[in-house]
Design a binder for these strands. Sequence first.
DNA 1: AAAATAAACTGATCCGGCGCAACTATTTTT
DNA 2: AAAAATAGTTGCGCCGGATCAGTTTATTTT
Lengths: 234, 234
Amino acid sequence: MIQLNDAKGISHCTVFDSETSWYDLLTDDEKIVINENSVSITFKKGETVCKRGAFASHIYFLEDGLVKVYLEEKNKNLILMLAIKNNLLGMAAIFDGNNKLPYSITTYTDSIVRMIDINIFRQLLKQNSAFSYHVINLLNEKTAQIYGRFFSLTQKQLHGRLADILLCLSNRIFKSTSFELPLSRADLGDLTGMSTESIIRMMKEFKDDGLIGMHCKNIELLDIARLERISEFG
Amino acid sequence: MIQLNDAKGISHCTVFDSETSWYDLLTDDEKIVINENSVSITFKKGETVCKRGAFASHIYFLEDGLVKVYLEEKNKNLILMLAIKNNLLGMAAIFDGNNKLPYSITTYTDSIVRMIDINIFRQLLKQNSAFSYHVINLLNEKTAQIYGRFFSLTQKQLHGRLADILLCLSNRIFKSTSFELPLSRADLGDLTGMSTESIIRMMKEFKDDGLIGMHCKNIELLDIARLERISEFG
DNA sequence: AAAATAAACTGATCCGGCGCAACTATTTTT
DNA sequence: AAAAATAGTTGCGCCGGATCAGTTTATTTT
């Protein structure tokens, strides 16, 4: 289990990555039910899996790929979280008053999504408490993450927010200090609550200060300790 | 069930108020277990129920009163939500990696909190799936709310955020267009992500514009339609 | 009731970060 | 390969809101 809020401060992380498998908690019969009531769909990079406001008919299990979960309204965008493979998405709609999806999902890379009938999923939650207990833990982990990000975006300024997201991408998504970004600068903006121009300026500043290396989409974190200090102080 | 995200826009609301009783979903035996493993504590106005970072030993059921659930760090504060009676709080710690509370809770008014042993609560979740299904719904409702607030605080400017919180207080807490605020201006600031001074200035502006009436702590919403428009356009 | 403390308010100043416009580089389309 | 569209970059001006420094008004304390 990954620690989300350490003693030092309130960390900002936006990736959800669960190792435990909910599927293993189902009985053999239940597994059959899931299999018969779900389909695996392939999405290309940049395709939309679902849109906020639509009726929620499925729970999405991301079998492979990288997606963003986001809110959009007028020209304002906010990425709520990034998700990598083995994530259950769309659970917030399980009992939303009106059964509408509370967010949209779009892929960053080619992705495979298993779409599970929401009523079947509800049924399993109601009948299998080991499964529903596990789901509660998943939800709580996401909630803790959202709190950290909420704090970061409302209380820190640009430097801190950029440091946060770079550390998060490195630790949680790419698991390496150097990686090739599938997100555009505009997406980084939607993730950190800043304008595209500010993202660019700030990244250049980080580069000039020797905190990161950067050639187009290729990023390398050079001074993690200093990035962490920037994240902490703001 | 209260609708959280309507078609018009992303609403900002910070109060959690559930009518359904989780307690009724327990069996008679389970009710006895809960009763034997919980105590009801009275807190005076302004007292701290729990602090972020402490080991989570209990789930808090707010039997009466009004509390804030918040993050604090250095001189930065962020109120995650307000809760009124009949709310379960502290559930985010049920399976947090390290069993630490992810937020602090303080009362605004004299309050009664039933403190339920967290392991007993876990046990009930594991054995009673009707109960855990209900808890999943509660968590999802909170999540949807947090998303709306997240959007509000990161994408709207002061006017919109103030309109949001005023409408929320009126609709969800006081259930009246006129009410006496138990929160200080500083708390309103922590709730909307703005400085105390800005809260004061903005409220005066709203008053001068005839949107609200205000005498010290007494607030009256005079033009709800315009407040909603301000909330929507930011 | 006086003193002390905290909360509410006001005005002046300053700057972080946004938005615009223009330009370049890269990718996609035809 | 040329054209079009998208993404990335830079400079500049401006303004929303924070911060600071103070005054006034409430609320506690003694």
